[in-house]
Amino acid sequence: MSDRDSLDRAYANSAHIPGGADYPARWDREARAFRATARSELGLAYGSGEGQALDLFLPAQAPRGLVVFIHGGYWIEGGREYWSHLAAGAVARGWAMALPSYTLAPKARIAQMTAEVAQAVATARARVPGPVVVTGHSAGGHLAARMACLSALERVVPISPLADLGPIAGTSMNDLLHLDAAEIAAESPCLSRPLAPAHVWVGAQERPAFLWQARLLSEAWACPWTPEPGRHHFDIVEGLCDPASPLMQTLIPAA
Rank of each mutant, 00 (worst) to 15 (best):
P229D: 04
T114H: 13
L99D: 14
W221A: 04
R231M: 04
M173L: 15
E183N: 01
G73I: 01
G65Y: 15
H233N: 03
R9I: 03
L162N: 09
P18H: 04
S6Y: 12
W212E: 13
A144N: 03
A21G: 10
F57H: 09
G239S: 02
A152H: 07
M248Q: 12
S101F: 08
W225K: 03
Q249S: 14
E219M: 00
Y23V: 14
C190N: 11
D8W: 13
G72M: 00
D164K: 09
G79W: 03
A25F: 06
A244H: 15
L240D: 07
S84R: 04
A122K: 03
S151I: 06
D22N: 12
E30M: 08
A204F: 06
T123E: 08
T103S: 15
T250D: 00
A53Y: 11
S48V: 12
S2Y: 06
V133D: 05
A209N: 00
V133N: 10
S48F: 06
L54T: 05
T250F: 00
E77P: 03
G47T: 14
F69W: 06
P24G: 02
V157C: 14
G203I: 07
L211E: 01
P197W: 05
P106I: 05
Y102E: 12
V117S: 06
R64W: 13
G72F: 00
A185N: 03
G78E: 01
E30A: 11
E228H: 03
A148G: 09
R9G: 01
I252M: 12
W83M: 00
L143Y: 10
A25N: 11
L153V: 15
G51H: 01
G130F: 07
I252V: 13
F57Q: 10
V200S: 02
P161H: 09
R80P: 03
R127I: 00
